[in-house]
Simulated scan of single mutants.
Amino acid sequence: MLLSLGSNQGNSLENLQNAVDQLFLELGSVKQISPVYKTKSWGFEGADFLNCVILIQTRLESAAVIDLILTIEKELGRVRSTQGYTDRLIDIDILFYGDKILYTEKLEVPHPRLHQRNFVLYPLNDIATTFEHPVLKKEIRELLKETTDQLIPEKITESLKNPNSAYNLSAQNYIAIEGNIGAGKTTLASMISEDFNAKLILERFKDNPFLPKFYEDQARYAFPLEMSFLADRYQQLLDDIGQYDLFKDFMIGDYDCFKSLIFAKITLTEEEYNLYKKLHGIMYREIARPDLYIYLYQNPERLLENIKKRGRSYEQDISENYLLKINKGYLNMIKNSSPGKVKIIDISELDFVKNRADYLSILNQIK
């Protein structure tokens, strides 16, 4: 989503920075910020404006976005006028919501007049020059060449800070997020990957033919299931970790190779486990280990709720006792890990999918 920000009252640069910071806290990850331009007031006589455009990634629907933006403007001191164009402390306009075309009572996207305004087109061209206007079917650079607006913005030397950079997750080359069944590790890893340009490594096991059978008869299918996971995880990690992506800042996965030992310890007999552990050691000897290992702790009650919600038929009979054993296995492994390399985050009272504040609190603990 591309937003235009403007201010011509008070400390305009500070107003823009406050808006960027608040949009990050409440709306989503700030992917790019254009240079800041100074422009004569457009459509009325007033003080010069400072303007910029930001690219922001949000998981909210458009109706929720416009309501949130109006709230943020009000929190930052804007008083809306019914008298047309006026001075303002802050102005936040939605230019594009991806390639969607929206016409509602509150919102028209793409912004109907953006192609007529240099104070929008100049910063927009800096960060989205080849983006195609979904209605006009022209790239931003073409719209800039064709505009009839005679007011030429002046790029200033000061710039805005991206609040994303405060988290600096790329300081770690490889982060693994682990947790019990239903803890939300895949969801969190996916969200971080999207927000911070990380290569995503997800465990592929949904089509494992032994998994449904295991939940029906654990004694019979435990060993073939664990051997299947052992081979699959090894091959995947060998492929994914070994192939660095030059366009990604770091790697993040929703599992670690030692997960296999934790589950095998619970499900296998002593003789089977000893054999399994020996094979595990041979196979994973050369596999790169995470620089940081995150364990998401949730209480068994929440785990059972999450398992029920996601609706996998073969998981519905998982017992609380089985989940407690898995938690214990993880905690035992963590006790024997290098200090500072493992972080336990209790998410039992958090909802990081629906509540961005909860998500950011987790990021703060990770960084």
Rank of each mutant, 00 (worst) to 15 (best):
L2P: 01
G6L: 03
S7V: 01
S12G: 03
L13S: 02
Q22H: 11
F24I: 04
E26I: 02
L27N: 03
V30C: 14
Q32R: 15
G43Y: 06
G43S: 03
F44T: 01
F44E: 05
E45S: 13
F49N: 00
L50F: 12
N51E: 00
Q57V: 03
T58Y: 08
L70T: 12
G77T: 05
R80A: 09
S81V: 03
T86K: 02
T86S: 05
D87V: 05
L95G: 04
F96K: 12
Y97R: 01
T104A: 07
K106S: 10
L107K: 02
P110D: 03
P112E: 04
P112W: 12
P112N: 10
L114N: 02
D126F: 10
I127A: 08
V135P: 03
L136V: 04
E139G: 10
L144V: 09
L144D: 00
K145I: 09
T148R: 10
D149M: 10
Q150A: 14
L151E: 09
I152D: 01
I156T: 02
S159W: 03
L160H: 07
K161D: 05
N164M: 14
N164L: 12
S165A: 15
I175Q: 13
G179S: 02
N180I: 01
I181H: 05
K185L: 09
M191D: 02
E194W: 12
N197C: 07
P209R: 13
L211S: 08
E216R: 14
E216H: 10
Q218Y: 08
R220E: 08
Y221T: 08
A222L: 14
L225D: 00
Q235V: 10
D240N: 15
D240E: 15
D245T: 00
M251D: 05
D254Y: 07
C257I: 10
C257N: 11
F258G: 00
K259F: 09
F263V: 04
L268H: 14
E270Y: 05
E272I: 11
E272V: 05
N274H: 14
L275H: 15
H280A: 06
G281R: 13
G281M: 10
E286N: 15
A288I: 11
A288W: 12
D291G: 07
I294Y: 07
Y295K: 14
L296T: 00
Y297W: 10
N299A: 11
P300D: 06
E301V: 04
R302N: 12
L304S: 06
K308D: 04
K309E: 09
S313T: 13
E315M: 08
D317Q: 11
E320Y: 15
Y322P: 02
L323V: 07
K325P: 07
Y330F: 15
N332Q: 15
K335I: 08
P339T: 04
V342Q: 05
V342K: 08
V342M: 05
I344N: 02
I344Q: 08
I345G: 05
N355V: 06
I362M: 13
I366M: 11
